[in-house]
Structures are given as structure tokens and as C-alpha cells.
């Protein structure tokens, strides 16, 4: 398995990363060398092995359905780059409807 520059560009786009041509080339190379290294694992026959979802074998930890958090809005909004005191304000997501 290997990745092409096209795929790297697509992955970057999905991750909202802007890469210049040099970076695309660099990351394609880097990712391929990682994949190359991981190929080692293919030598192991895992057809009979259950996929491991978590490295620690442990039971589910539940929380009872009880109100706990009391976090003030003032505190919640404190780190927001922009706020009107009620909402988080972010750049407009939907363009104004063309009439």
C-alpha cells in the first residue's frame, strides 16, 4: 500500500491543512516510508485474531445520569476569540442567499 500526491492533497483538504507543493512532496514521501515500515506487520498472520479496539482490557465505566456540571457561561466563553456574551461568534458559515 502506498499513497499518491493526489491522496495526500485530499487528506490535507479533509484535515483543513494548506500544503504547498514542497510539503505535498515531503509528506507523500514521509507517509510512504511509514507505510513501508508498517508492512513488517503484514508478515504476521492475523486472520484468526480479533481486532483490538483498545490497548487496555477493561470494563466499560458508566456514569449515573445525575446532574453534575455547573459551569458558568461567563467562564465557558472566556477563551472564545469572539463572543457577544451569549454565543460563540465564528465567521459566517453560510453565504448570504443570492436573490
Amino acid at each position: 500500500m502506498s499513497v499518491t500526491e493526489q491522496e495526500v492533497k485530499r487528506i490535507a483538504k479533509l484535515a483543513k491543512l494548506k500544503l504547498n507543493e514542497n510539503e505535498v512532496e515531503k509528506f507523500t514521501k514521509d507517509l510512504n516510508s511509514i507505510l513501508e515500515y508498517m508492512k513488517l506487520l503484514n508478515e504476521l498472520d492475523t486472520s484468526e485474531v480479533e481486532p483490538l479496539h483498545h490497548p487496555v482490557e477493561s470494563e466499560t465505566i458508566f456514569r449515573e445520569d445525575e446532574l453534575k456540571s455547573k459551569f458558568s457561561r461567563e467562564l465557558a466563553l472566556k477563551n472564545a476569540p469572539k463572543t457577544d456574551g451569549e454565543f460563540f461568534l465564528v465567521p459566517k458559515v453560510i453565504r448570504n442567499k443570492a436573490k
Binding site: L67, K68, S69, F71, R73, A76, L77, E86, F87
Partner: peptide, 18 residues
């Protein structure tokens, strides 16, 4: 998380770091 699910609360009053 333990925040309330109540509908119609003032904006951003039922939130926590989680």
C-alpha cells in the same frame, strides 16, 4: 458529561469543558 439536556435554556448555559 453531567450537563443538563433541558431544552430551551439560555444559550451556552448547559455546557462544560467536555
Amino acid at each position: 458529561c453531567g450537563c443538563s439536556t433541558k431544552f430551551g435554556a439560555q444559550p451556552n448555559t448547559n455546557i462544560c469543558p467536555v
